[in-house]
Write a protein that binds this DNA or RNA. Structure first.
Lengths: 394, 394
DNA sequence: CGCCCCTAGTAAGGCTCCTTAACTTTATCG
DNA sequence: CGATAAAGTTAAGGAGCCTTACTAGGGGCG
């Protein structure tokens, strides 16, 4: 289920009713993006007349969408009454289904987290995982003290791509059985909340764009390096999904392997670091983390493995840069903890590979990027839904 | 000058005046995209009432934006009067500045070419080239018999990227001196037509999307292989430009050269075919065309050079596919004439490089892609301008 | 041939919502 | 305490759309 499902409705005619609601929406959006304001201020900024602003704001207030939040005295004259959106007009749900952790959050319309849970994902089968998601989400909603009916929309982040026609997740290699059809429908049904499913890297990109280091970027790429390899692209504030939702699946980038062509994902993901380290002479129980730690303490084989990893990531960044022309590339995911080691080598290698110079930065949100991206996406629709629901009623 | 320059105006308030103009625009757009229609038909399709449609249509007619184009008898009942946009309400200018040819076209608002000229570009200096553009454009407008004041907008396609701040074209390696500041301003001034400058590959993509084989594609990539190498990307019908207008500059893709990292552009462009052929043992005066011709007649060295070229293009396609997820990739430019030789090898190599399977097709417009893209882009703005100009008057 | 039905298009009246202009309220400044 | 200035309200007027009711015109059918 992608956003296009929602947008498919044929454009409604522009009658007077639409006009009223358009103006109310204009005011609400203004209040959300630039903060509280008085009627007079809104009138000046939007170009609407004062009476119109007053009446629209009154409508919004009786609909429960805005409320007074205080006063402000101008240099001279009567004190102004400030209005702001009411964050409690509705709530949204965000879910991050990772291979190691399941994260769930409930946020109000301001985006403030009202309740949250992080649970280890020990589920071995897809049914168990679905149950875990539903159970955790129920719990979090209960903890938040919010009426479940007020949770109007949810977004789930997972590896792979959701195929709305086949009603299943595809390309989710690292979650066993997760590609079964109907799983999402089942969760939606049991939870009683409309659910949208998106790729985790895409959501992480959106999260980092909305709450993290990507703010204001015109074209922003987030590279998620962990068990797998993925990239999310945010163009002009909107997710760039490609024709089938596969944009940024840089695991499929051609990569010059030694003998045979090798998939880039195999060369860059966490597993590869371990393999490289072993090849350079490290031994024992190795994980990506232990290799990075060893490199940090000067272990030569580990350092070479990290160096190689840097080169490989640089190749990815250079390829993405040539195709997309981002002004910012963020490295995140499992390597987030090791960016201190990787950032410099990646930047240097990129310089040798391409004349393009996108800013390269570490993730600010770290492990929370996917969850916050899910929340941000859910909020977008939740705000629309709440607006329509509340204004339709009166 | 990019589109963003135009969009910067702060959003106007949604008063009733806007509503009227919005509805008129709605009707006009409907007529443009789906063809002539009667008042009653428009009312049904847009959801507006019949009187509203009648009155809006009357406004549009007195503004000269639509006119009657005939009648249609329904199965039963009164015959309907059909209305359609008046193509003569304004005109647009398209220019393709290539290294070998300069092409100029004037089109009416329907997109029909009213006059056109293709001139060899023998200019050695940038000033001479600018003069040639202005002169040819003047000539074409004169030939069209259109009042120059009615040519409301123009778009120029050129290699490189126009930097609106520095008022000059950057990265235009193949046109000597073309990067000088103020050249575009000068042409704009002498011609008296607002000019926009865009990258040629981007315009070719848009052209192929609008008039060619890309129609209806959700995400469409056009690879322009000629003297240089470029790619244009059309996403959801809109040009995808990246943060600085450099998206699709796949000349900068990292490419595993033999010893040193080598720029992909050097490996794929027409020159490279000649080099490869020479390396494989061909001799004499070689051009890309002669190599392809030889390969077509079974010359073994030429065939190997073409094979290599196919591999290299496949690498490009695979990289673009992994990052963008296009549903269609079109090969165009100088190799357009040789696509018969290249298409199969490219498709096969892509299959070995990545699991993604975008449709790969030859350009339908060939050498006209850039010009038609310029025309299409100019039309977008021209239609807006004409609408605003004419409706503001009454 | 005339009646009826059906569709296109017009006319009149009413409703909604916006704007302008004037007014009230409330604060600061001299 | 009056002048000034800004916030906000009230009242009058107008623009644009919709609904209802009508006229215009064309074909089928008795």
């Amino acid at each position: 289920m992608t956003a296009s499902d929602v947008e498919e409705q044929p454009e409604q005619p522009w009658s007077r009713r639409r006009l009223r609601s358009t103006n109310e929406r204009l005011l609400l959006d203004r209040l959300r993006t630039l903060g509280a304001a008085s009627r007079a201020q809104l009138a000046r900024e939007t170009g609407l007349s004062k009476p119109t602003v007053s009446s629209a704001l009154a409508s919004l207030e009786t609909a429960g969408l805005v409320h007074e939040v205080g006063t402000q005295a101008p240099e001279r004259g009567r004190t102004a009454v400030l209005y702001a959106p009411d964050p409690a007009a509705g709530y949204a749900l965000g879910v991050d289904i990772g291979r190691g952790w399941l994260r769930v959050a409930v946020v109000d319309l301001d985006g403030t987290v009202v309740a949250r849970a992080d649970v280890r994902n020990r589920a071995r089968a897809s049914a168990a995982l679905a149950d875990l998601v539903v159970g955790t989400a129920r719990q979090v909603i209960a903890n938040s003290g919010v009426d479940p009916a007020e949770v109007v929309h949810g977004v789930v982040g997972t590896p792979g791509v959701y195929d709305a026609r086949q009603r299943r997740v595809r390309y989710a290699m690292h979650l066993p059985g997760w590609g079964r059809a109907g799983l999402v429908d089942r969760m939606r049904e049991e939870l009683g909340v409309p659910l949208e499913v998106h790729n985790d890297a895409n959501l992480a990109a959106l999260g980092e764009y909305t709450y993290g280091v990507g703010t204001g970027s015109r074209l922003f790429a987030y590279i998620l390096i962990g068990t797998g390899l993925g990239m999310g692209v945010v163009s002009e504030g909107r997710l760039f999904t490609g024709a089938h939702g596969l944009a940024g699946e840089i695991g499929f980038l051609p990569w010059p392997g030694r003998q045979k062509p090798e998939r880039l994902e195999d060369a860059v993901s966490g597993v590869a670091v371990v393999e490289a380290a072993r090849e350079f002479g490290m031994s024992g129980q190795l994980t990506a983390k232990t290799v990075f730690d060893a490199a940090r303490q000067g272990h030569p084989a580990a350092a070479r493995a990290v160096e190689l990893e840097g080169e490989r990531i640089a190749h990815t960044v250079a390829a993405a840069a040539a195709v997309l022309d981002p002004d910012l590339v963020v490295l995140g995911g499992g390597v987030g903890h090791s960016v201190d080691l990787l950032l410099r080598p990646v930047q240097e290698h990129v310089r040798t590979l391409t004349p393009l110079r996108p800013r390269i930065a570490p993730s600010r949100l770290g492990e929370d990027a996917v969850l916050l991206g899910a929340v941000a996406t859910a909020l977008d629709t939740a705000r629309d839904l709440v607006f329509e629901r509340r204004t339709a009623g009166s």
